[in-house]
């Protein structure tokens, strides 16, 4: 996107400008900031919605896979394998551009949310399965021996212990979902990246792109940190 939108800025002019004026231009940044923040808001909304839906879907899938019995379990396995194989971008484009042919028309937001959640659910299911299978067999037996129902075995005994095991991989999955929200800009979703490319075109200056990159980092770093802290706390309690 660089050459076209920087327009007639020649090599000589660029050479005359300082690095700061080009990449970290304060006035361009301040001008584009409102648009970037609007985009950030959409990115966060899209990401969080997809993470939550993906987790819920993943939980459902892993229960079907592990305890669903004959028709459901292989179907869940099939779903998980297929959606871990399909690139999110391809799925998004199929949902947004192909589904209207069969009468299903989703807004950019819901098209992106659907694509991200469908894929995230498959990954979450695999992560949760590893977590559940990582809970020692004796824990299931003790839970059954005191007479807990299957649902109580899960909610009281297995999942709280599995959570500890799955926090690191679920974190990286959630971060991936958050980063993949940038793909939504291809279906005209005015997310952070889209706002940045538009502002860059408007200002004929790449500063908004740098700003967007920095905002992505600022957004995700504390997320990584706080989950790391939570993991430590769980570790201290149980060990």
């Amino acid at each position: 996107m660089g050459e076209g939108s920087t327009g007639n800025a020649s090599f000589e002019t660029i050479a005359l400008m300082s690095i700061f004026d080009t990449f970290l231009n304060w006035s361009v940044f301040v001008e584009s900031l409102p648009a970037l923040l609007r985009g950030l808001w959409i990115t966060v909304g899209l990401g969080l919605t997809s993470i939550v839906l993906g987790l819920a879907g993943g939980l459902l899938l892993v229960m079907l896979r592990l305890y669903g019995g004959l028709p459901m379990s292989p179907l869940a396995i099939g779903y998980i394998d297929v959606f871990r194989s399909v690139p999110v971008l391809v799925l998004l484009i199929v949902i947004y551009y192909a589904l209207p042919f069969v009468g299903i028309r989703l807004s950019p937001f819901w098209a992106a949310t659907t694509a991200l959640s469908l894929v995230s659910a498959a990954y979450s299911a695999e992560i949760l399965r590893a977590g559940i299978e990582g809970v020692p067999k004796g824990q299931f037996e003790a839970a059954r021996a005191i007479g807990l129902s299957s649902i109580r075995q899960m909610t009281d005994i297995v999942l709280p212990q599995a959570v500890k095991l799955v926090i690191p991989p679920l974190t990286s999955n959630s971060i991936n979902v958050m980063k993949d929200t940038a793909l939504a800009s291809v279906v005209a979703m005015p997310d952070l990246l889209k706002q940045a490319t538009q502002a860059q075109a408007l200002a004929a200056n790449p500063t908004p792109l740098i700003g967007a990159a920095v905002i992505y980092v600022i957004l995700l770093l504390p997320f990584v940190r706080s989950v790391g802290l939570l993991e430590n706390r769980l570790n201290r309690r149980a060990r």
């Binding site: 020692p136 004796g138 824990q139 037996e141 003790a142 021996a145 009281d156 212990q161 149980a238």
Partner: peptide, 14 residues
């Protein structure tokens, strides 16, 4: 109606 005590205790660590 049946309680069980295990060799490895199997207490709930959390």
């Amino acid at each position: 109606e049946t309680g069980m005590v295990f060799q490895n205790f199997n207490l709930f660590p959390h």
